[in-house]
Amino acid sequence: MSMNLLRLFNGRKASAPVARERLQILLAHERGLRGQPDLLATLREEILAVVSRHIQLDPDKVTVKLDRGPTVSTLEVDIEVPNNFEHEVRANRRLGAV
């Protein structure tokens, strides 16, 4: 009540409710992850292992990002591969490598 009245007078929007809501969403998520191994690091490692079986990769050029939205989240996997990697793969196959 008092907060609403004051807001009416000074015309500014209270930021505390936004802070509370952001914290509640974030902490609900972080508490769920607690005690579990780092999901993104595990994903990155395993994706790197699978792709490396076929293409030579620079491990630093693999990024895995998670963007949490209110209803759905996006998992973004970004792998930078060298040009001509298809030729290298074919050449390796002919040599009986891989």
Binding site: M3, R12, A14, S15, A16, P17, R20
Partner: peptide, 8 residues
């Protein structure tokens, strides 16, 4: 806090 500028 009363003005809603700080977490209560």
């Amino acid at each position: 806090a009363a003005r809603g500028e700080m977490l209560s």
